[in-house]
Design a protein around this nucleic acid. Structure first.
Length: 710
DNA sequence: ACAACTAAGGTTTTT
DNA sequence: CCTTAGTTGT
């Protein structure tokens, strides 16, 4: 039985699927059947007689690649045995681990997650005694951001600071020193961070020719999804792996590039044809996801992009659902209105076909409490993750110490519950454990601190008789039990469930390192039985590649979406626009945009007026319907351009603040000032002056000649 | 000298 | 709400 490709695919998709030899670049608009194309290509290759083990599929999440492989197997009617699939990072981890010796890690290495990295930066800075008592010294978070940005963009620190954090210029040398010490720290403690995975793999493939040849021979067919979000190292890795065969397909959409902040480089996708000569370019422009009204709106979002995207999506999905823009009175009442909207939509769609999207994890907080109060189930993506929860990290560090006794970060965490032992003492104990002469000190400390003694004994027992990951975890969780109840008196039962879940996950692993890495590499473990009846709450980033019948976007006001941090530099603002595009293109049939008129400000404890997001302001009136919340609680349709006027006639609406759409602020736009940097022009004062709001500096009146308009 | 406690300041996005 | 700097206590 063979697959009827012609029937299952459109012309462009068919071409992408059947061009199996040589480099192919697929520019796939949102909802254009990108996944379908990859899935069919996988199936097609295997049907043509390609050994599944010769295929490598690199995707953005491991879940995505698993799903594609499963779907391909369904089409084929048999499983794809041996196909490698996963993220760049997970692939790198697996390859590096098989070659740990080559890297200089005789006894393996441990992967650090974000918190580990921050802790390491904190320690290193303390060690170097940099910025003692200097309140404006960048925080570890910021320091780490700059370090990884400099690595991912492969630019020197001073260039990054110059461009993206000019106010930190005085600290450039300190930052460089920390970056160097951080690298040494990792080496010393057999730790690799996310960036190291990629750079070490690149290094390994560059210098180890036999390995490179072995891999490029093995992977005769390589497919890379979301290519617009790869960075320079990732592109080099692809190049290494492709080798002689030249059979590589990159799939992506330049309009959906949303990871520049971590070093992704859109140029990768644009330059792909240069790097792989003879590239065949296929464009998928037909949209199979959304009704035309939604596409009209999303196309408008791109209209105002600085870099124009040569793309206009079209769809012939039947449906007559005009997107709506809803103006709640405040972000607090927004939660209630969103809830009402969800309940209304749930009559038409199952809950898991409804998603609420937002820019940053914390923005769903109000809504979460409302949903919980009403007993509506929800699943949240983005924000705090399972493996970042304190109790999970605690147990994980115990586990890490069983495999890597050099892991200082894990020691710090594991010894945290020992009363009377702080950072300094941990360092001493660590030293004692790693030097022959440390015995006396250790026995002294073991006598002094019973909890320390217990822990070391426990670890010894486990190390002497290694169990399976699940067995080890069971032991450690029992050991941790008393600590859990003491540390989290308020909610330990809930956390206990999390640990049980962790133990459950462990049963599917034979290998401890692998399990540890997976937990860091793949945020949340798969909910075994996904509750079908749960609304989805997600950050826009985490919603990438997903779709729902109904999508609700909240907090579309200035400083939130676009993020306050992104307004300063035009490139960042452009990325926010693409983010907005990604968010809206997730919707198949229904799209609601919520624009609260006021935002609660905890600084002065009151609600303050908020400007609607520029991305909403610039939308033409005819591509959405407008609703305002009335003070009596309901929402009412308002404004001229509406198609129908069925709204209930409550008169209260007239008391509302005016739509700020006509205000000059948005027309005046942004500008650059030599000293204050990027600012938003609020008003024109007289013939030659502007009132400008500079983030970090506040309102200023500046003579026009001194600013550069953007 | 170091750990524990307390008050205040600041919040993007992710592998 | 979660991190961190400053203060108190051992």
């Amino acid at each position: 039985m063979s697959i009827d490709l012609k029937n299952e695919l459109n012309k462009a998709q068919y071409e992408a699927v059947t061009t199996t030899e040589g480099p192919v670049l697929v520019i796939a608009g949102a909802g254009s059947g990108k996944t379908r194309t990859i899935v069919y290509r996988l199936a097609h290759l295997v049907e043509q007689g390609v050994d599944p083990a010769q295929i490598l599929l690199l995707t953005f999440t491991r879940k995505a690649s698993q799903e594609m492989l499963t779907r391909a197997a369904e089409i084929l009617g048999r499983p794809l045995d041996g196909t490698s699939g996963g993220t760049f990072h997970s692939f790198a981890f697996a390859t590096l681990r098989r070659n740990a010796m080559d890297l200089g890690f005789e006894s393996g290495f441990t992967l650090m997650d974000r918190a580990d990295q921050e802790n390491a930066v904190r320690d290193v800075r303390a060690e170097l005694e940099l910025g003692k008592g200097d309140k404006s010294f960048p925080k570890k978070n910021t320091v780490l951001d700059l370090i990884t940005k400099s690595r991912n963009k492969e630019e020197p620190m001073d260039a990054v600071v110059q461009r993206e954090a000019y106010h930190l210029s005085p600290y450039v040398e300190d930052l460089e020193a920390i970056a160097r010490a951080y690298a040494i720290f990792k080496k010393k403690h057999a730790l690799l961070d996310y960036d190291d995975l990629l750079f070490e793999l690149d290094k390994l493939l560059t210098k180890n020719e036999p390995l490179r040849n072995q891999l490029s021979t093995r992977y005769r067919y390589i497919m890379v999804d979301e290519y617009q979000d790869t960075n320079l190292v990732q592109a080099r890795i692809v190049k290494h792996l492709v080798g002689e065969s030249g059979n590589v397909m990159a799939v992506g959409d330049d309009a959906q590039s949303i990871y520049a902040f971590r070093g992704a480089n859109v140029d990768n996708i644009l330059k792909f044809p240069e790097i792989f000569s003879g590239t065949k370019i296929v464009r998928l422009e037909r949209n199979y996801r959304s009704v035309q009204q939604i596409l009209d709106l999303t196309n408008h979002i791109l209209d105002n992009a600085r870099t124009k995207f040569d793309k206009e999506l079209y769809s012939d999905i039947p449906g007559n659902s005009v997107p709506e823009v809803v103006y709640p009175i405040s972000d607090q009442t927004q939660a209630k209105l969103v809830l009402d909207r969800i309940l209304k939509l749930s009559k038409k769609y199952p809950l898991n076909e409804i998603a609420v999207l937002f820019r940053a994890g914390y923005q769903s907080f109000h809504l979460e409490t409302s949903l919980a109060r009403l007993g509506v189930e929800y699943r949240k993506f983005g924000g705090i993750r399972f493996n970042e929860a304190a109790h999970v990290k605690d147990v994980m560090s115990l586990l890490r110490l069983c495999v890597n006794t050099n892991d200082l970060i894990a020691w710090q965490r594991a010894l945290d519950h020992v009363k009377g032992v702080g950072p300094k003492t941990v360092a001493k104990i660590y030293e004692a454990l790693h030097t022959d002469s440390g015995g006396k000190y250790l026995t002294k400390m073991r006598k002094k601190h019973e909890a320390l003694n217990d822990l070391l004994n426990e670890l010894d027992v486990i190390r002497k008789s290694p169990l399976t990951p699940a067995g080890t975890l069971d032991r450690l969780i029992s050991f941790y039990q008393p600590i859990l109840t003491e540390k989290f008196p308020d909610d330990y039962p809930k956390r206990q469930q999390g640990l049980d879940q962790l133990a459950q996950i462990a049963t599917s692993y034979q290998d401890m390192d692998q399990m540890l890495a997976d937990l860091s590499l793949e945020g949340d473990p798969d909910d075994k039985e996904v509750d079908e009846e749960s609304v989805v709450l997600s950050t826009v980033h985490s919603a990438k590649g997903l779709e729902w019948k109904a999508v609700i976007l909240i907090d579309l006001v200035e400083d939130r979406f676009p993020s306050r941090r992104a307004v300063q530099r035009p490139e960042d603002l452009e990325e926010e626009r693409r983010l907005m595009y990604v968010a809206c293109t997730r919707a198949k049939e229904h799209l609601s945009l919520f624009v609260p008129k006021t935002i609660y400000n905890r600084y002065n404890g009151s609600s303050e007026p908020a400007m609607p997001s520029p991305f909403v302001m610039e939308l033409p009136n005819d591509c959405f319907e407008r609703f305002h919340e009335s003070y009596s609680g309901g929402i009412e349709q308002r404004k001229s351009a509406s198609v129908h006027a069925k709204s209930p006639s409550r008169a209260a609406a007239s008391a509302e603040p005016k739509q700020p759409s006509g205000k000059p602020a948005t027309k005046l736009g942004y500008c650059n000032h030599k000293i204050f940097g990027k600012g938003k022009i609020i008003a024109e004062i007289g013939p030659d002056k502007y009132r400008i709001n500079f983030p970090g500096f506040g309102l200023k009146v500046i003579i026009k000649d001194y600013v550069e308009l953007l």
